[in-house]
Design a protein around this nucleic acid. Structure first.
Lengths: 248, 248
DNA sequence: CGGATGCTTTGACGCAGATCAATCCGAAAG
DNA sequence: CTTTCGGATTGATCTGCGTCAAAGCATCCG
């Protein structure tokens, strides 16, 4: 594996794309300055491994741009993705020295890193960081539990539809906020990665994608570009409650 | 459902059985006093529902004694347990007004409750509470992710063995700390609850329990009492890494 | 004592999704 | 242009687990 792990410049935190959603979201300008002073960036190419499960991990980090995955592997090679890291998501656990999962860059990836020790110290003195981290961790726990329902009880078709709906919704919320017009987006995952996420084989993923296309739920443009005419129609296929019950 | 939700006395926090593991674990005596002043106990009988998903939830709580479950239900009735709450575990989410899951008492249950608003205020002024809550939430997230691997990739036999191993290990760690002698414990769950936890049907659970018994991995005394002669043998059946790799 | 009632076990059968294997397709390289 | 190579698709077949159904076995209650 060609390590391509270059240091890049230090943009100002003020115009960081994840400034208001990452672990630093709640920080005041003086707190931000402290974080700024210990941060450094790392880049990874698509496909590169950020860290292996069990390896010593002396930093924590936020995803700035790109997508990474958290996966667990069994001795015989069975794999299960346990998290999808999008921009602003946090990696690593204060108070733990070894990585618990493999972290892999799915697309080109930029991470904003903090050495663990200084970060932990800062957390002690800066309640806004710990507060925000708690909030984010609780959100992740909810997401993990939603995924448990998917893994344990949904059919292959429902699993695919759920994954597409999550990505479609996120895309839709960024652009045409609220509109139920058609959504078009890039799948950031290969069929195999989708399979690892959904607890399926890549063949089943492929077959169900074809089936959803045949049934007019989605359209494909190339292999990766997805068009969803009716988000409602897609949501019906997920098996979830129709009223996307908001729990704030 | 006969509601039997009695208030009981206020034992002193000092000799609370979960004092050193619950959300209050890190508190100094003055902090504890504040918590003490806003706490109240609630008891539930085995089988009672503590709260329904979507209901207004104006408190958070710690399990003091007994076991409760967190489950999600789909419209058509498919159910998935997403958490098992043991003594010292925390229920509820600061900053959220509605319950996200059904909470059910599996055994008789006593919870130490705090009204949400005062608790949130206290969290702001008492960093030790927020710290401990973050730590506990991170542990729960790890547990949820381990469960995702189980749900997505393990066979029925491995699922059963994993569940038994978790309970056996917890029991063993309490008693014969370290010894690999035989462990004997009560299953706190019905076959159906096991099925809901493992993403199986109750018939499959029953069959695999019989198979593990037939193969000499476990012994049954009645329906609920389990005897594990060799914990190592049981662990082999879980599909996990043989060296229970410690991640501290 | 007998018959509910709730939980568990066991059997017969079917099917969703895994497995094995053959193409297919598009992009990059020669 | 052809070759190669990393996905993706599609087909044929197998199997683990779900489904449906019938007992079995305690505990409780009249």
């Amino acid at each position: 594996m060609s390590v391509h792990d270059l240091k890049i410049g230090h943009p100002n935190c003020g115009d960081c794309p994840i400034r208001h959603r990452a672990v630093c979201a709640r920080c005041e300008s003086d707190e931000l300055a402290k974080l700024d002073s210990i941060k450094y960036y790392r880049s990874f190419q698509a496909g590169q491994t950020v860290i292996w499960s069990g390896d010593r991990m002396d930093f924590v980090a936020s995803v700035v741009t790109g997508i990474a995955t958290l996966t667990q592997t069994m001795e015989d090679g069975r794999r299960q993705m346990v998290g999808l890291l999008l921009p602003s998501d946090f990696v690593g656990r204060p108070g733990r020295s070894q990585a618990a999962y493999d972290v892999t860059a799915t697309t080109d990836l930029v991470m904003c890193c903090f050495r663990k020790k200084p970060f932990e110290d800062l957390m002690g003195s800066t309640p806004h960081i710990a507060q925000r981290l708690l909030e984010m961790t609780l959100d992740e726990l909810d997401a993990a539990r939603e995924w448990m329902l998917l893994l344990g009880r949904k059919t292959a078709r429902e699993k695919i539809a759920s994954l597409l709906a999550i990505i479609a919704r996120r895309t839709a919320s960024l652009k045409t906020a609220g509109k139920t017009s058609d959504v078009k987006f890039d799948l950031p995952l290969t069929r195999e990665e989708m399979a690892d996420y959904l607890g399926l084989t890549l063949e089943t993923v492929s077959r169900q994608m074809s089936a959803l296309k045949r049934d007019g739920v989605i359209e494909l443009e190339g292999k990766r570009q997805i068009i969803v005419q009716s988000l409602d129609r897609l949501l019906e296929e997920t098996g979830d409650d129709s009223d996307g019950g908001f729990l704030v």
